[in-house]
């Protein structure tokens, strides 16, 4: 009985996703050039948020390293963009971030709670400042130029990354490793005592999530043409996914997607004209979410649904 309800729900979700993908895939055919660029930005945020949530959602490890992996991707294409074919560079960006995340994961397994958060944050800053020092000292310039790619190509690559990510996230969530991740979030030592190799599960998942951030950095960098360490390793890229995921609803599959879409839309709408109000709104939304909506927007929607449908959906 329970099993069938879940399946129906999944089929519906899958159907909606397919329609969404179809609409998105044909966007350059009917949409304006601006809408393509705009949608690319939204997709970027969705990818960063969902890949962040793959690891941090179930485990509760608050990673602020997103900007590090994103930036590694950016620098991969800045360094190799001229010599290596575009798709290969993007994959390399993912691989580089994957490796960095493996290393970081292996080193920081012992750190819990805020320690892990501040460590990952410090890591971004460390990379940023070492890189800045290196660039000025040895290359003589602060920034680098990135190969230019046309907007439609960027769009399709981002879309491909998004689809791969959603499939990956879905598979992980449904697999036994998804359960293992969840058990780590619930009680790490108990998870270890029932045979879960917590260190390996954590590190690999962290690295998988990082590889998507790296690929995203690599392709998105082509839109900015000129990058420097400050722009590439901006700590805002670490915070936004956290905010978006929490706002949308961390525990669910589509919560982070919803949160990222709304925030990205809001950003596009407000940031050029009212940047201060935009950040003020973001701060307020975050605060209100933490205080009053522990399960995010999705939690609120579910509560409303339950209230509307009365007793029927109350006990799924």
């Amino acid at each position: 009985m329970k099993q069938t309800t879940i399946d129906i729900k999944n089929v519906r979700t899958l159907g909606l996703l397919l329609i969404g993908v179809l609409l998105l895939a044909t966007l350059p055919l009917y949409g304006s050039p601006y809408s393509v660029i705009f949608t690319t930005s939204i997709i970027m945020y969705i990818v960063l948020t969902v890949s962040w949530a793959i690891f941090s959602g179930p485990t509760g490890y608050l990673s602020l390293a997103t900007a590090a992996f994103f930036g590694v991707g950016i620098y991969t294409i800045a360094i190799l963009g001229e010599e290596v074919q575009l798709f290969a560079v993007i994959l390399l960006g993912g691989v580089a971030s994957f490796c960095l995340a493996l290393l970081v994961g292996a080193l920081t397994l012992r750190l819990k709670g805020v320690y892990f958060a501040v460590f990952t944050f410090g890591l971004v800053e460390l990379i940023k400042h070492v890189l800045l020092w290196y660039e000025i000292k040895f290359t003589g310039t602060r920034g680098r130029f990135v190969v230019v790619v046309d907007n439609t190509t960027i769009y399709y690559i981002m879309l491909a990354i998004l689809i791969t990510l959603l499939i990956t996230a879905f598979v992980i969530r449904r697999s036994k490793y998804g359960l293992a991740l969840q058990s780590i979030g619930e009680d790490e030592s108990a998870a270890a005592h029932i045979g879960v190799n917590v260190n390996v599960v954590k590190t690999i998942t962290f690295a998988i999530s990082a590889s998507f951030m790296g690929m995203t950095g690599a392709i998105m960098a082509t839109r900015w043409t000129y990058i420097d360490p400050y722009g590439a390793f901006k700590s805002l890229y670490s915070f936004m996914p956290v905010l978006m995921a929490i706002f949308g609803g961390l525990g669910t599959f589509y919560g982070p997607i919803l949160g990222a879409t709304i925030f990205a839309y809001l950003e596009e709408l407000l940031i050029t004209e009212f940047p201060y109000y935009y950040m003020l709104i973001i701060g307020s939304i975050l605060l209100v979410t933490i205080l009053y909506m522990p399960n995010g927007l999705v939690g609120v929607v579910q509560r409303l649904q339950r209230r509307i449908s009365g007793g029927r959906g109350a006990n799924p």
Binding site: K176, L179, Q182, S183, D187, I194, G195
Partner: peptide, 28 residues
């Protein structure tokens, strides 16, 4: 070798079945 804990460490937000299922999946 399996153990229980002095202060219970169940996976509180998971269903009872899930708790045991997880152990069978990874510990066996």
């Amino acid at each position: 070798v399996a153990r229980t804990f002095q202060s219970v460490k169940v996976f509180s937000n998971m269903p009872v079945f899930g708790n045991i299922y997880l152990a069978a999946l990874f510990g066996n």
